[in-house]
């Protein structure tokens, strides 16, 4: 009998590990295949379309690299890239700062904390399209913003001499888009940073206080360094979302497309899915490069903090 078991050992082990992992297999398979199928479809489409030249909505040549060459030489694409880069470089740090501010304000026990938290979470709950609608109303011709800056409210100085269109000015249009994006996404940064803040042991502040450190010093020497992981995830996740941004500039800066808006323009308005796909692929490449650079920078920052 003992020999039996020894002989069957290997077979038995394989059978056992298979049986043991069956549960694993059946639980992970649906999610992986669901995502995997869509991943495959999207990637296949993008690559396929990018290699096809379209004219008037009809595919005329495939495979070809013409779309890639056209895009690289296109001034429009370069402008859109610069705008996107500015959008990313401005909105990401802004979200970090506002998120950190919100998180620190409510990382405290006080009466009505639940209500304040709910209010701080509201921008995330409100549909993006609603946010754009409000901004559009506020900054439209004859809206509050113009009235305000023309000095029509008694309590506010006149800043502009004549009415401007916020939507039709590159600087303000992108600015408003960034404002909307930051307003809407601050709660997400806040949640991540709040989780980081809550994991900081309160004793450390007390210990620092006994050594004569005040609130400001505490923030720079204890909170910030300990928050580095949370800050890193905010920067990485938020910058990816900023690269991909579509809806705010689509509604608020239609004349000054960033890359996401440019994709829509080529696909829907110019009936050129080939070029749209190429821009999409470039955008993904930018996201990957951008995240890599950001990760490298964060790594340097981390090392610097450890040294000091």
């Amino acid at each position: 009998m003992a020999d039996d078991i020894r002989n069957n050992g290997r077979f038995y082990n394989i059978y056992r590990s298979f049986k043991k992992n069956l549960f694993l297999f059946w639980t992970i398979l649906p999610a992986i295949s669901y995502i995997g199928i869509f991943f495959f479809i999207i990637a296949f489409f993008l690559i396929n379309l990018s290699l096809t030249q379209f004219s008037g909505g009809q595919a005329v040549l495939s495979p070809t690299l013409a779309n890639y060459l056209n895009i690289i030489n296109s001034q429009e694409f370069r402008d859109a890239f610069i705008r996107t880069l500015i959008f990313v470089l401005v909105s990401t740090p802004l979200q970090l700062i506002t998120g950190l501010l919100f998180a620190m304000l409510i990382n405290k026990e006080f009466k009505g904390r639940g209500i304040v938290r709910s209010i701080f979470l509201l921008p995330m709950a409100i549909p993006t399209i609603v946010t754009t609608a409000i901004l559009l109303l506020f900054f439209s011709k004859g809206g509050h913003a113009t009235s305000l800056l023309l000095g029509e409210y008694a309590w506010f100085p006149r800043i502009l001499s004549r009415e401007i269109s916020f939507i039709n000015n590159e600087f303000t249009a992108i600015g408003i888009s960034i404002l909307g994006k930051v307003w809407r996404d601050t709660p997400i940064s806040m949640l991540i940073l709040l989780a980081g803040l809550q994991s900081i042991n309160k004793d450390q502040y007390e210990a620092a206080r006994t050594m004569g450190s005040g609130s400001v010093k505490n923030f720079f020497y204890i909170t910030l360094p300990l928050l580095v992981p949370a800050i890193s995830s905010v920067l990485v996740l938020r910058s990816i979302e900023a690269w991909k941004e579509f809806i705010f500039p689509y509604i608020l800066a239609p004349s000054y497309p960033i890359l996401g808006v440019l994709i829509e323009r080529y696909y829907v308005q110019l009936l050129d899915p080939g070029t749209a796909a190429v821009i999409g692929i470039f955008l993904i490449i930018f996201i990957i490069i951008g995240s890599a650079i950001l990760n490298w920078l964060l790594e340097q920052a981390r090392r610097y903090l450890v040294k000091v």
Binding site: F39, L46, I284
Partner: peptide, 8 residues
């Protein structure tokens, strides 16, 4: 899959 821009 979240790397793909929604619009793409």
């Amino acid at each position: 899959i979240r790397l793909f821009p929604d619009i793409s």
